[in-house]
C-alpha cells in the first residue's frame, strides 16, 4: 500500500500518494474500501471506482451543480472535493433514494410536476431538495429557490423545479 509513515524534515506525518492509497468511503449506507490517488475527486471516485454514474459530471469546476451529493448530510459539489479528504465520511447519492423499486417522494414529485426536460441536472437538483427536506420539512418557496440556487438547469425548468420541491415536501410531510 502506498500509505507510508515518512519523516518529512523530521516531522512524523503520514504522507500518502502520489500513487494509490486506501480510503474508506461510506456511500449510501455501505462502506467501501477504495484504492485511489490523492488527486481523485469524490466525483470520479463515485463514477469510476464505484460505478455510481447517477451523479453527473459536466463543468468539473463548481459552476453547474450536476455533481451535487450529500457529504455528512450536507450538499456539496463532488467535483470540488478530493476523495481522500472524504476518507471515513459518509456520502449520499441519487442512487440511495429509491427503495425496493419504489421511487422516493421527491422523485415522484419531479415526475408529477414534469420538472425536467433533458434531465441531466436532475440528480443534482433532487439531492439539493433532499438536503432541504431533511432539515426543513416545511419549506417556503423562497427556501426552495435558495437551496436550488447552486444547481443550474440549462433547459430552464425552474418554475417546475420549485413546484416539484414544494409538492415533494407535501408528500414527505404527509407520509405519502
Amino acid at each position: 500500500m502506498a500509505t507510508k509513515a515518512v519523516r518529512a524534515k523530521k516531522l512524523k506525518v503520514a504522507i500518502r500518494g502520489p500513487g494509490k492509497t486506501a480510503i474508506k468511503l461510506t456511500v449510501n449506507g455501505e462502506t467501501h474500501e477504495l484504492l485511489i490517488e490523492p488527486r481523485r475527486t469524490l466525483l470520479n471516485a463515485l463514477r469510476k471506482d464505484l460505478g455510481l454514474t447517477g451523479t453527473k459530471k459536466a463543468c468539473d469546476e463548481g459552476t453547474c451543480g450536476t455533481c451535487t451529493v450529500l457529504l455528512e448530510g450536507k450538499p456539496i459539489y463532488a467535483c470540488m472535493a478530493l476523495a481522500i479528504e472524504c476518507d471515513g465520511k459518509s456520502v449520499e447519492t441519487i442512487e440511495s433514494l429509491s427503495k425496493d423499486g419504489q421511487l422516493h417522494p421527491i422523485q415522484r414529485a419531479f415526475i408529477a410536476e414534469d420538472a425536467l426536460q433533458c434531465g441531466f441536472c436532475t440528480p443534482g437538483q433532487i439531492m439539493s431538495v433532499k438536503a432541504l427536506l431533511d432539515e426543513n420539512p416545511n419549506p417556503t418557496l423562497d427556501d426552495v429557490k435558495r437551496v436550488l440556487s447552486g444547481n443550474l438547469c440549462r433547459c430552464g425548468a425552474y418554475p417546475k423545479l420549485f413546484q416539484a420541491a414544494l409538492r415533494a415536501a407535501d408528500l414527505v410531510r404527509t407520509g405519502r
Binding site: 516531522l11 500518494g17 490517488e37 478530493l82
Partner: peptide, 27 residues
Amino acid sequence: MRTFEHVNAPDVQTAVALLGEASTEAI
C-alpha cells in the same frame, strides 16, 4: 490535475513546517 502527495495536518506547527517546503500548498 497532476498527481500530488497528500498529508493531513495534525497540528498548526506541523502544518507550518510542512508548508515551508518547496512545491507544497495548503488546502
